[in-house]
Amino acid sequence: MGALLDKIAVPQDRFEIRLSGSGGQGMILGAVILSEAIGGDGTKNVSQTQSYGPEARGGASKSDVVVSPNQIFYPKAMKLDLLLAMTQESLDSYYKDLKDGGTLIIDNVLVTDIPTDNYYGLPFTRLAREEAGHVMVANVIALGAIAALTGVVDKETLINAVLARAPRGTEEKNRKAVEIGFREAEKLKK
């Protein structure tokens, strides 16, 4: 007993992303857009899952995207490489799932109690309301930041994926939202 379990390691070919917030913040749509952006050209596989049913209504809502150049065996996240937490409750719920040395991105207005100094904080919800023109695009600003901070997808591909899902008449707002997120995150990289 234990001979195998002492030796196992999380597979290196997977990059696991979780977008989390509260119901209505667009975390699931954000993960769908991110999956389409990353998987669109066929060079990477994606597996997107989400909280479903009663757990998706109210409280912490999450959606995961697993990315790999290889076939994705296990469809769900095992140990997160990236956690986006848009609310305090979502950080409290999911921080334990983040890998050591994984990337943590938070909304630094809504999330104040953070168990680590190693994180990126941006005021996504405030940026959405004050700069992008609508609180609804906070998720898209966060996608822009993810692109800048991880390189998991490039900015133009992300913009195209966002626009493919944007309701008619909101294209400019959404494009601007990606740009804001990308620009603000670039500043954090120094």
Binding site: V32, S35, E36, G39, G40, G42, N45, V46, S47, Q48, T49, Q50, Y52, I72, P75, K76
Partner: peptide, 10 residues
Amino acid sequence: DEVIAHSRSM
């Protein structure tokens, strides 16, 4: 099953 039914892939 529910996992395959509701997960998304390209």
